[in-house]
Design a protein around this nucleic acid. Structure first.
Lengths: 115, 115
DNA sequence: CCTTTTCATCGTTTATCGCCGATGGACGAT
DNA sequence: ATCGTCCATCGGCGATAAACGATGAAAAGG
């Protein structure tokens, strides 16, 4: 079963809202915890938006792999997706990215002030 | 074999230093991309330092699991470890944490200024 | 209509994660 | 010396992640 104690309430001795907060942060961190996805983010933002093919051409990754990474970034809310003819337009959501940055900063701050 | 294109040089069409930069960020993000580890970080910093047992008592996780999480945090350079008699003292490295925050902020900034 | 391009998705394989119980080492106390 | 406590590590197990090739749908071009 495995069922992590942090997956659902009741398995942890902490208030649920605190934990769910950590879960939310962790989820977005997870999306950024792969070098390919960080590079993709940079590439997307350098150009203003890219289709999948452009990313594939730039990195030595199979098209299916790139598509997967893009999907993960979209699901994490860090990248916006818009179908454009037979292409797909992927665009960095700068606000969401800034939000992640703010979350990390908040965590760091809470750690420096004794929570 | 699997061997990610980002694991070693030559598999990627990008300058190695750039990629290794992304790898470094990704590694630290990975350490923070688990709710338990975020909670542990908070707990460590709320108290000034903890031994493993204190963390175990606080969360519903087996001692071996907590020890594992702590090890991951130490290896990521986010937590300092110091053996203290038969106990272990774990302490948040606030500078390292601030560094992570800065890295993320830099990534976000580079994305906002067109890299 | 047929071909090419672009892309998402499926299925597979391999590696890694997350969790646990068990084991054993190192101390401290009795 | 023996016991209890604290801890790191090992082995195992199920779940998840990461990579790929193959397939098929949707457009665009011939």
């Amino acid at each position: 079963m495995t069922e992590s104690p942090f997956e659902s309430a009741g398995h942890c001795r902490l208030p649920e809202d605190v934990v769910s907060d950590s879960r939310a942060i962790a989820a977005r961190m997870a999306a950024l915890s792969h070098p390919a996805r960080i590079e993709i983010i940079k590439h997307l933002s350098a150009n203003n938006s890219c289709c999948c093919r452009e990313v594939v051409d730039r990195f030595d990754l199979a098209q299916s792999t790139v598509s997967q990474h893009l999907k993960i970034l979209v699901e994490a809310g860090l990248v916006r997706f818009e179908p454009d003819r037979q292409r797909s337009r992927y665009e960095v959501d700068r606000a969401a990215l800034a939000d992640v940055s703010a979350s990390v900063a908040a965590l760091v701050n809470s750690c420096c002030s004794g929570r």
